[in-house]
Write a protein that binds this DNA or RNA. Structure first.
Lengths: 184, 184
DNA sequence: CGGTAATGTCTCAAAACAGAGACAAATAAC
DNA sequence: GTTATTTGTCTCTGTTTTGAGACATTACCG
């Protein structure tokens, strides 16, 4: 019986990443908790989603900052950021999904969006640097690199969940495909 | 006022692809139709989902078959299959999503699964052929290639929806990244 | 062991969602 | 222009989801 609140948030991120409008019952189930308990911690769906947002920010920001600090070489930084995204799993997927959907109205004034911009900014700076020094192909745009980055991470997470690819190899495959895919 | 039923199915695929449990109201909204009209064509969510499944099968199968028929060169076939997936858009995304989720219990006895296997089989054959002739890197598995394929298509569709990458360039980017990403 | 905090069970009421009837309005067909 | 078909509006009913109170049960702490 330890940190139920965190359990529920983690479960919610997993569930909502796959099914945004899933009933809270499913979240409770995934967290191995009754719906009644979930409601003791969160007034409702909105509050739960807000906690998810916070957790994703915290987690992704931390992982990405670590990755950046790991080296001065932007290529190594990029590689570690990819691994960081994979390690964050659904937290990264759902986070970027939330902020790149058509419905989402992005505004730097919104604190959540600002935080997302901060995470994204780190990443963006590395890309720009690599493209300036000619490591990344000039045929593609930085925006596409960003999309591919998320796409490869999502594919890796799917593969992990599906189980058809050995978990140990996944990160290698991901970096192989992503790095080649951006012209390295 | 023409083919409302098809309109609704197309809208449903778009909506459910992003939010599987979205209320039918949202589908009706996307189709520019009232919920009452939707209910005249579909008894309920299940029937609508079944129609989506059929439409996705029809559409994807057709597009992939065309791509296969376009050439004898497996590499050209693969390239055209990627473009076909992008053209199918949410139809392809949702289709593959439905059949690769953890919840989904795959069974060849189910007609829908059999149809998916048929589409996937075409694709799989091309991959195997390319890997046998050494065109695709031996470092990665056919399963990973399949995951990456879906991932790149999803990324392309997201980029298109997000609008941050010029639509004309998207397919080029997608093929560039995917082909390099599998070692071509 | 005893006390406290967290969780589960049962229950109920409000809200959201789903489905369909009845008829008006709009659209297409002739 | 008249008729038939389709769609929209309003309405109602049943179901699912949501949220919370009251109390039993279980886990944790000293």
């Amino acid at each position: 019986m330890q940190n139920t609140q965190q359990n529920i948030v983690d479960a919610a991120i997993l569930v909502f990443n796959e099914d945004y409008s899933a009933p809270l019952e499913k979240v409770a189930e995934k967290a191995a908790v009754t719906r009644r308990t979930l409601h003791r911690y969160f007034k409702g769906r909105d509050e739960l989603l807000a906690s998810c947002e916070q957790e994703m920010q915290r987690s992704c920001n931390h992982a990405m900052t670590q990755a950046l600090a790991s080296s001065d070489n932007p290529l190594t930084q990029l590689e570690n950021m990819l691994y960081a995204g994979v390690d964050c799993g659904a937290k990264y997927s759902f986070f970027s999904k939330l902020h790149t959907r058509a419905e989402h109205q992005h505004s730097p004034h919104n604190a959540d969006c600002a935080e997302y911009d901060a995470v994204y900014g780190h990443y963006r700076a590395v890309i720009t640097r690599l493209q300036a020094q000619g490591t990344i192909s000039q045929h593609i745009t930085a925006e596409w690199v960003a999309m591919l980055f998320s796409g490869v991470i999502a594919a890796t997470i799917n593969a992990e969940a599906f189980g058809s690819v050995a978990k140990k190899s996944l990160k290698q495959f991901a970096w192989f495909s992503f790095s080649k895919g951006i012209g390295i």
